[in-house]
């Protein structure tokens, strides 16, 4: 299947992902994987069966520089509205 042939504008990629699993990268150090059910021109999204990954830095108390371990917290939601202004990218297929 040639996805690119059906795409005239950026939103076509999202339209072709309706009812499919998508990967969404968000501002605020977050990523989502969920099934896309709705979107609008602001890139507001409604996803179901969502797994959210939040990047967390474990910083020892009082430490003000250097490296801290980056860990990931996971969270699940059944049905989630995502406000478009936080979206960095949407990719077809969950990761």
């Amino acid at each position: 299947m040639d996805i690119a042939s059906g795409i005239q504008e950026p939103f076509d990629l999202i339209r072709l992902s309706l009812s499919e699993r998508v990967f969404v990268k968000l501002r605020g150090d977050r990523e989502l994987s969920g099934v896309l059910h709705a979107y609008d021109g602001h890139m507001n999204l409604i996803l179901s069966d969502v797994e959210e990954t939040i990047m967390i830095v474990d910083l020892p108390e009082g430490q003000t520089e250097g490296t801290g371990a980056v860990s990931m917290a996971k969270r699940k939601s059944e049905m989630l509205f995502v406000r478009g202004d936080g979206v960095i990218l949407v990719a077809p297929g969950g990761r």
Binding site: R27, G28, D29, M55, V57, L59, Q63, T64, E65, T67, G68, V70
Partner: peptide, 20 residues
């Protein structure tokens, strides 16, 4: 504020998330 800045820098360096 200080902690958030350090954390943001680490996430920027290691994961490519830009600071808010």
């Amino acid at each position: 504020k200080e902690r958030d800045e350090v954390k943001a820098q680490i996430l920027f360096d290691e994961q490519g998330y830009s600071k808010e």
